[in-house]
Simulated assay, not measured.
Amino acid sequence: MGRTQKRAYQEIRPIEPVMDINQIAPQLIGQSLWSGWLMFWATLWPLVLGFCLSGLVQACASRNAMERVMGSHKPGAILRASGLGMV
């Protein structure tokens, strides 16, 4: 083989696009909408649950009882209120 001959694996072929933007765009839009829905759901249900629990506490516990348990600004009362807030 001389220098002018090319082997089969040395052929230069133009790279053909697999898909153009008109085919890819709807798929990308669909994926982004699905990701947005999943993020919305991931934040929605904890918020709803938290608001429901807060409403339940406000409906069941009287203001006087809450002030008696957590009313002062001492470190013990702050720790108690923080602990109850984490639950």
Score class of each variant (00 low, 15 high):
Phe51Ala: 01
Phe40Cys: 01
Ile15Val: 13
Glu67Trp: 08
Ser32Gly: 12
Gly85Gln: 00
Gln31Met: 00
Met39Gln: 02
Leu56Pro: 04
Gln58Phe: 14
Arg13Trp: 08
Trp41Leu: 00
Met86His: 03
Leu38Glu: 09
Arg80Pro: 12
Tyr9Val: 12
Leu38Gly: 12
Trp41Thr: 01
Asn64Leu: 11
Gly30Leu: 05
Ala81Val: 08
Ala77Ile: 06
Ser35Glu: 15
Arg68Ala: 02
Glu67Pro: 08
Gln23Arg: 02
Glu11Ala: 12
Leu28Pro: 01
Ile29Ser: 10
Gln23Gly: 10
Pro17His: 14
Gln58Thr: 14
Trp41Ala: 09
Met39Asn: 00
Thr4Arg: 11
Ala65Gly: 10
Leu53Val: 07
Leu28Gln: 11
Leu56Met: 12
Met70Cys: 01
His73Ala: 07
Trp45Val: 01
Pro14Thr: 07
Asn22His: 09
Ser72Trp: 03
Ala25Val: 02
Ser82Val: 12
Ser32Ile: 09
Ser54Tyr: 15
Trp45Lys: 03
Gly55Ser: 06
Met1Glu: 15
Gly83Tyr: 05
Ala81Leu: 06
Leu33Phe: 06
Gln10Asp: 00
Asn64Pro: 04
Trp37Thr: 10
Cys52Lys: 14
Trp34Asn: 12
Pro46Cys: 06
Ser82Phe: 11
Gly76Cys: 03
Ala77Thr: 08
Ala81Tyr: 05
Leu38Pro: 12
Glu67Cys: 08
Leu53Glu: 12
Arg13Tyr: 13
Leu47Pro: 05
Ile12Phe: 07
Ala42Tyr: 00
Ile12His: 04
Ile29Phe: 03
Gly83Glu: 08
Tyr9Asp: 13
Met86Phe: 04
Leu33Val: 04
Ala8Pro: 13
Gln31Ser: 00
Thr43Asn: 02
Glu11Lys: 13
Val87Tyr: 06
Leu47Gln: 13
Val57Cys: 03
Leu33Ile: 03
Ala77Gln: 05
His73Gln: 04
Leu84Asp: 08
Trp45His: 03
Pro75Ile: 06
Met1Val: 14
Met39Arg: 05
Gly30Trp: 06
Ser35Pro: 14
Trp34Ala: 12
Val48Arg: 07
Val18Glu: 06
Glu11Asn: 14
Arg80Ser: 15
Met66Val: 10
Val87Asp: 04
Leu33Trp: 10
Leu33Pro: 08
Met70Pro: 07
Leu44Pro: 11
Ser35Phe: 15
Ala59Gln: 11
Met39Thr: 10
Pro46Ser: 03
Gly36Tyr: 10
Gln31Asp: 01
Ser35Asn: 15
Leu79Met: 12
Leu38Ala: 08
Leu49His: 01
Gln58Ile: 14
Trp34His: 12
His73Ser: 11
Gly85Val: 09
Lys6Asp: 14
Leu53Asp: 10
Met70Val: 00
Pro17Ala: 15
Arg68Trp: 11
Val48Lys: 09
Met86Thr: 12
Val57His: 02
Ile78Asn: 15
Val48His: 06
Val18His: 09
Gln27Leu: 15
Pro14Phe: 04
Ser62Met: 01
Gln23Tyr: 04
Asp20Thr: 11
Ala25Trp: 03
Phe40Thr: 01
Ser62Gln: 03
Trp37Ala: 12
Val48Leu: 07
Ser62Asn: 01
Ser32Leu: 11
